[in-house]
């Protein structure tokens, strides 16, 4: 059974505006969870990281949560 959330749900593109999905892959400090914790493939982890970084730049997600 695959653990990759995006592969399992056949999501091909990760949108930086979809912050409700992106939030699930952040820890309580707002940092991106590691692959060990997200269970994503390397490709999807890279796509996720890029989407989160875009969302941070656009102030849709915080850089840090104190």
């Amino acid at each position: 059974m695959t653990q990759d959330y995006f592969k399992a749900n056949q999501i091909k593109n990760i949108d930086y505006k979809d912050i409700e999905i992106l939030k699930k892959f952040l820890n309580p400090h707002g940092r991106i969870n590691s692959r060990k914790r997200t269970g994503l493939s390397a490709t999807h982890q890279r796509m996720l990281a890029q989407a989160i970084k875009r969302a941070r730049y656009m102030a849709l997600l915080p850089f840090i949560i104190k």
Binding site: Y5, N9, I11, I14, D15, K17, D18
Partner: peptide, 8 residues
């Protein structure tokens, strides 16, 4: 459309 309408 890249926004996911129903979030699993």
């Amino acid at each position: 459309d890249t926004m996911i309408s129903t979030r699993p």
